[in-house]
Amino acid sequence: MFGYAIRRVLSALPVVLIAVTACFFILRLAPGGPFDGERALPPETLANLRAHYNLDLPLIQQYGIYVGRLLQGDFGPSMVYNDFTVAQMLWIGLPFTLMLGFTAFVVGTVAGLVAGSLSAVNQNKLPDYVLVMLVMVGLVVPNFLMASILQLVFGVYLDWFPAGGWKPGSLQHLVLPVIVLALPHAGRTARLMRGSMIEVLGTNYVRTARSKGLGTRLILARHAIKPALLPVVSYLGPGLSYLLTGSLVVEQVFALPGIGKYFISAALNRDYGLVLGTTILYMLIILAVNLLVDILYAWLDPKVRYD
């Protein structure tokens, strides 16, 4: 298993390099620049700034300098936040983004597994129809619209939860953002779990267990849940990646101090270093999550072996 993990990491390096290269040149080719503010800078000041950040060099040479720094673990300086490097900015926002994403991941996964199992057990009955309808709501309504609706209803009209902002240690500020992030993830998990559970409940060994007089709960616990989880586990890696990237918009809507706040501001202000650093960080997180999912899949299915 350790050798497989090493091979996966090595095979992912070309993908990371291609993604970094594409993102680097797309950002540079986009109109505007980091110093195109409302107030025009004097030509001498602008020339000094461009020279300081190597923006006066040919594009290929800028790319070589950036990749060289990246290989040394240096994400470079921020072109908008003068007192911080990109690594410092990411270190400030990453803990909150991870906390928000993983909390929504746990809540959405548990809710999706429970809803999918209940829907499968009550197939073509009223609970099944109700749960499927709720699942579709979570899938159809986009994050930014759901966030605005929850802010208006529960934050303004009912005043049950804060409509935005963040107070350290206050769980109330996390309720609405976690719900917004968890809803689509719970919907996708529930659909996968429902279909997989229906298929497992129709297998011969489950029929045999029922013929021996075992109850539904015992059948689910001993025979159905583990094989039914296999399609869900395959989705958990991309699902967590979706939550972490989707949290960028949610953090902006709810004014939360995560990476999303800096990433969107950097994209608007053409802060090349911060945008690239955030992209690379998310790629590394996604690769790590997918590796963990592969290992978990092998644990759930004894037929899967990574030799």
Rank of each mutant, 00 (worst) to 15 (best):
A298Y: 12
V16E: 01
Q172M: 12
W160H: 07
D36H: 09
S170I: 00
P177L: 15
P162Y: 11
A255W: 14
L220S: 13
Q88H: 04
L236Y: 11
Q252T: 15
R217S: 04
T109Q: 03
P142G: 05
H173E: 14
V86D: 01
L240C: 07
Q72F: 08
I219L: 14
D271K: 00
V107K: 01
G93V: 01
G258T: 01
L174W: 12
L256H: 06
S196L: 01
L71R: 10
A30K: 05
G237R: 02
F254Q: 11
I295E: 11
L183E: 03
D301M: 05
N82V: 05
P177T: 09
V289E: 12
H185W: 10
V289T: 13
P43I: 06
L126I: 06
A115K: 02
R28V: 04
A40N: 14
A115H: 04
Q172F: 07
A190L: 05
V110D: 05
V253Q: 10
E199A: 07
I149C: 12
P177E: 13
P77L: 03
V304P: 08
L71C: 08
L41R: 05
T85I: 04
K226E: 09
P95G: 06
V110C: 09
L118C: 08
Y297V: 10
A87P: 00
A163H: 11
I295Y: 12
R207W: 13
A190P: 14
A190H: 03
S117M: 14
V130S: 03
L113V: 15
L236F: 02
I92C: 00
L118R: 02
S117L: 14
R69E: 10
L134H: 00
L248I: 15
H173S: 15
F25Y: 04
W91V: 00
A182W: 05
V67F: 13
A228S: 14
L248S: 04
Y262F: 06
K167A: 10
T278P: 00
A266M: 02
P42S: 05
P31C: 07
S11I: 14
P95C: 09
S234Y: 05
F105S: 04
L174E: 11
L240S: 09
P34H: 00
A104L: 08
R50Q: 11
V200F: 09
V140M: 10
V141R: 09
R207K: 13
V130F: 08
P184W: 03
M197S: 10
L276C: 02
S119T: 07
R8S: 14
G138I: 03
Y4K: 09
Y157A: 10
L150W: 02
L243Q: 09
I65S: 07
R69T: 01
V249A: 13
I280A: 11
A255D: 08
V141Y: 05
L240Y: 13
L152R: 03
V153I: 12
L291K: 06
G273W: 03
L220M: 12
Q61E: 15
M193Y: 02
A19W: 04
N143G: 07
W166I: 03
N143S: 15
L218N: 14
T245K: 10
L139P: 00
S119H: 11
L220T: 14
I198C: 13
L240A: 04
R210I: 05
L176D: 09
P257A: 07
S119P: 14
T278L: 03
V9G: 09
A163R: 15
A298L: 13
I295C: 04
K167G: 01
L17Y: 12
I264H: 04
L134Q: 04
V304L: 13
F102N: 09
Q72V: 02
I219N: 07
